[in-house]
């Protein structure tokens, strides 16, 4: 079994393979010169091959050119030399100090721009390649100002999913009277409060979720701060009452596990209950968010009464877990 390669340098991942059985037929289009070295006339194609991919159709597509097709390295230079679309005077000299400091270096210089004449040549040669049935464009670079994005797409690239899921859920819980925009402003203020408040002092008696970062790192990542606080006080179970099942008209209390979203919802409702009972300290739109944020800090520091609610819920769940094997419940399950 032998292979006939038709390829060129520097043109992306689109080589054409011509497969022949029992011989070596190799056409190499290298630096614009087509060389058909050796073509044997052994038995025709294998039964699995498509009928059009025979050697004669390949030869039709080949031509011998005395000149080189293109200077491919120049195309790469054109692709790399990116500037801001609307800045005519983009130069690297505007920020001379930036390189000296720790800040990242400034924009790529535009000095390597390609003259216009060779751009035409490149375009012509690309047309030529397209006429051969080859793909002259690197889809990673050409036709895209910033290249193609890496797949899978990051979550925040879709504008409908741009916020963290916990933040979205909590914002909706903050919402009153369907005023989502106001709730979003409140949420932004809560996160700002967390960002600017001093790092929390963790109470060892109220351990946060295992694997949580050091408290000094929390303020600069307020979403993590909020998520940590809510997930740490979130209950694992809720109590479900089966009416009249315990006998004598009493209801049967059974612990039920909660989903992650349900757990967060319960925890934040508890936090909101505490917040709504707190007296307001001032006027203005920042006051409600400040109270919520203070309670979140209190949760992380272990001062909040929400911890007791969680403990109580877990205690009830532990006490009532024997009811999971209650005969009435089993009967119902069958």
């Amino acid at each position: 079994m032998c292979w006939a390669y038709l390829t060129r340098q520097n043109i992306g991942p689109s080589p054409i393979f011509l497969r022949r059985n029992g011989c070596s037929a190799r056409g190499l289009l290298s630096s614009g010169r087509a060389v058909v070295s050796q073509i044997s006339s052994n038995p025709p194609h294998a039964p699995t091959m498509p009928p059009r991919l025979n050697i004669w159709s390949a030869c039709q597509a080949l031509s011998v050119r005395p000149r080189s097709i293109a200077q491919w390295p120049q195309q790469c230079a054109a692709a790399q030399a990116r500037g801001f679309a609307n800045d005519r005077n983009t130069t690297s000299q505007r920020f001379p100090d930036q390189n000296a400091s720790n800040l990242p270096p400034f924009a790529i210089s535009l000095s390597a721009q390609v003259p216009a004449a060779s751009e035409n040549e490149i375009a012509l040669s690309q047309l030529q390649m397209a006429a051969y049935g080859l793909d002259p464009f690197d889809s990673k670079v050409d036709g895209h100002k910033f290249g193609m994005p890496d797949l899978p797409l990051p979550r925040d690239l879709n504008h409908k999913h741009r916020y963290d899921p916990v933040v979205v859920q909590i914002t909706k819980l903050l919402m009153r009277d369907g005023k989502l925009s106001k709730a979003q402003r409140d949420m932004a203020m809560i996160l700002n409060y967390l960002r600017t408040s001093p790092p929390p002092k963790i109470n060892p008696a109220r351990p946060l979720l295992p694997g949580s970062p050091a408290p000094s790192q929390l303020p600069l990542d307020p979403v993590l701060y909020l998520t940590l606080a809510i997930d740490s006080v979130a209950p694992l179970v809720r109590m479900r009452a089966y009416k009249g099942m315990a006998g004598g008209g009493r209801s049967l209390e059974v612990p039920m596990p909660l989903e992650a979203r349900q757990r967060r919802r319960t925890a934040f409702q508890w936090i909101l209950d505490v917040v709504n009972k707190k007296p307001t300290k001032g006027s203005g739109r920042a006051m409600f968010p400040n109270r919520v944020a203070e309670e979140i800090v209190a949760v992380v520091e272990g001062r909040s009464g929400v911890w007791d609610k969680r403990q109580l819920m877990h205690k009830q769940g532990t006490a009532a877990r024997a009811n999971l094997n209650h005969p009435q419940l089993r009967k119902k399950g069958q």
Binding site: A100, S101, N102, L220, K281, G282, S283, G284
Partner: peptide, 26 residues
């Protein structure tokens, strides 16, 4: 109840520093 002017001063307070933010070198 808050004193007269107290709530306004809370609302109009200017804070110029955040000790959590990193100091910028250079």
């Amino acid at each position: 109840a808050p004193l007269p002017g107290e709530r306004k001063s809370v609302r109009k307070r200017i804070q110029l520093s955040n000790s959590n933010a990193l100091p910028v070198q250079g």
